[in-house]
């Protein structure tokens, strides 16, 4: 697929409307790469002038900071800010709530000031502006449940954008008992993604997966790469991967547009 990097654009003296911050999971995780590509297909289909940093992008430093390594976080943050400011970036969209939270809330203190949008809000906007038209189709009547990512929900009060994207699909949106402000974490935040859980009676992702399955939904919608991994593992653990799919909002919208 043809994706323009900032370096290419800058060489031509052009600037994008928005920078797509792909994130490490979106770049390296096989499952989440599909989300990255789905989102790119949508951006291209609606003719958004965007670019990515490509090889110049590096980890925002979120997991290092949450695990306590402030030096490493700030090293990452400062060098990313240098790159972003060097390209005079004004607006960033990302499909990762952790990157979103870090760039939006933690980079300004270190000299990085951008308008940062999570892809759920970006998609919501495209739908509201009529740039994406979802015809009632394959999702009609299908049960979808949405799992709130902590870093979107409680961390940044984004509860409605992802739901309004799902509502546009004309699907039957069912809520889990613990949702919105009381949504249960998937278990991966705070750098848990990068280590085994502590000793306990149960894994958090299993607890959450059970709750999601109890809704009877056949699709569990997520908006975060870590939630994607944790819930996909949970669904596999419950041997339900054949009838229950874990999908990102961008994939669902891309499917509805025949872009997948």
């Amino acid at each position: 697929m043809n994706v323009v990097t900032m370096a290419d654009m800058a060489a031509k003296g052009e600037s994008p409307e928005v920078l797509f911050w792909v994130g490490c999971a979106g770049s390296f995780d096989d499952r989440y790469k599909r989300v990255t590509r789905a989102f790119v297909k949508i951006l291209q289909a609606v003719n958004i002038n965007f670019a990515v940093l490509g090889p110049e992008e590096t980890c925002t430093g979120d997991p290092a900071r949450r695990a306590g390594n402030e030096f490493l976080f700030q090293m990452q943050a400062m060098s990313n800010i240098q790159v972003l400011n060097g390209y005079n970036i004004k607006k960033i969209v990302t499909a990762c709530p952790h990157c979103f939270n870090t760039i939006k809330n933690e980079y300004p203190e270190l000299g990085g000031n951008y308008e940062v949008i999570h892809h759920s809000a970006f998609l919501q906007q495209l739908i509201q502006e009529g740039k994406i038209k979802v015809e009632g189709g394959s999702f009609k009547g299908k049960k979808i449940t949405y799992h709130d990512s902590c870093y979107l929900g409680r961390a940044n009060n984004i509860y409605e954008a992802p739901r309004s994207v799902l509502e546009a699909l004309d699907a039957d949106l069912v809520e889990m008992k613990r949702c919105r402000t009381t949504g249960l974490c998937c278990g991966a935040g705070g750098a848990q993604m990068f280590k085994e859980p502590e000793k306990g009676d149960k894994d958090i992702n299993i607890e959450r997966t059970e709750e999601a399955l109890a809704t009877g939904a056949t699709t569990i919608a997520v908006a975060c790469p870590f939630c994607m991994t944790m819930l996909s593992d949970g669904v596999k653990g419950k041997e339900r991967e054949n009838d229950v799919k874990v999908k990102d909002l961008a994939e669902l919208i891309a499917e509805s547009q025949g872009l997948q």
Binding site: M1, N2, V3, T5, V22, C24, G26, S27, F28, D29, K33, T36, R37, V40, V52, G54, P55, E57, T58, C59, P63, A64, Q76, M193, F194
Partner: peptide
């Protein structure tokens, strides 16, 4: 430059 051990040169391979 990523929390997983992938070569940085592979970062843009998704495209």
């Amino acid at each position: 430059f990523a929390p997983w051990k992938f070569p940085p040169s592979d970062r843009f391979k998704w495209a």
